[in-house]
Design a protein around this nucleic acid. Structure first.
Ligand SMILES: [Mn+2]
Ligand SMILES: [Mn+2]
Ligand SMILES: [Zn+2]
Ligand SMILES: [Zn+2]
Lengths: 141, 141
DNA sequence: TTTTTTATAGAAAACGATTATCGAGTAGTT
DNA sequence: AACTACTCGATAATCGTTTTCTATAAAAAA
């Protein structure tokens, strides 16, 4: 992993910096689909001088070299995912957390759309919204 | 239609104004899924004094009374649709137009997700991106 | 290792879509 | 016509994101 991002950055002419490694390591070891501010806050303790702009610029690079994807979960900010398979997400409208939709294969559905349209489909994004188990419990009290 | 929006506005305590009727009429008679600025530009000729803020405030009201839905097609601005069924859209990454995905029933897919997750699903949004027929032709020249 | 080159980090300002504020004007009511 | 409450449009504010600029760190060359 560490090797992977290092050589990918070098191959594309980007320099390998502690900030970039830290951001990618943080993202690839969480399932929380953080946005830029969450990443910034998380790394604040370890890298007190790092700015939010650096997070944004790093995400741009990581996206370009194919290590992260940008998620649009119907919020006002983007979230990031180091899992590169195209998979749907679900967001809790009460607590705001974004999770993967488990055990879903979207290929059949994507194929059906691809064949039903004259567009040359290059990608897609699916997101659901609802209430997570924890918030459901909280509500029923 | 005209009757519909008029009584819906009145019933919810909103006043019926020329601007609101014009915005809704424009939206319900196009398939282009315009964003606020497109609506504003389109109505500029007929309503030269209308401001962009009025378009936004009107969309908020129309959404609230259930006459329009807000689309997120992976752009930096929202688009609006007077068709209230929840249907997927496809955006051309070259010319930017947003169209309906034809002849697709999403119910089976939505049901599968609903049963596979512990979330209480309240809604969803699907969008595809790719290259439209016109831009494909343009490219192959 | 030292020097040279080049890209980067971070502070600050800019940006752009959307929202909030406010005073004058208008719709609907009496 | 007069009254009241809502709405319009100009303007400012907001906020996530992007850009600009320059000292500095990383990579390449010597
Ligand atoms: Mn994910
Ligand atoms: Mn549509
Ligand atoms: Zn929740
Ligand atoms: Zn096109």
């Amino acid at each position: 992993m560490e090797v992977c991002i290092t050589s990918l950055l070098r191959d594309k002419g980007f320099k390998v910096t502690p900030q970039r490694l830290a951001i990618y390591n943080m993202l690839s070891s969480t399932r929380s689909h953080p946005n830029a501010e969450m990443i910034f806050n998380e790394l604040q303790a370890m890298y007190p001088t790092m700015s939010l702009a650096t997070v944004y610029k790093t995400m741009e690079i990581l996206k370009e070299i194919g290590l992260v994807q940008v998620l649009n979960a119907g919020e006002d900010s983007f979230r990031y995912d180091a899992v590169m398979t195209n998979h749907p997400h679900v967001r809790c409208t009460e607590c705001g957390q974004v999770e993967d939709v488990p055990d879903i294969n979207i290929d059949a559905f994507v194929n059906e759309v691809s064949q039903g349209t004259k567009y040359q489909i290059m990608g897609q994004q699916f997101y659901f919204h609802g209430i997570c188990p924890a918030c459901q419990r909280k509500n029923s009290n």
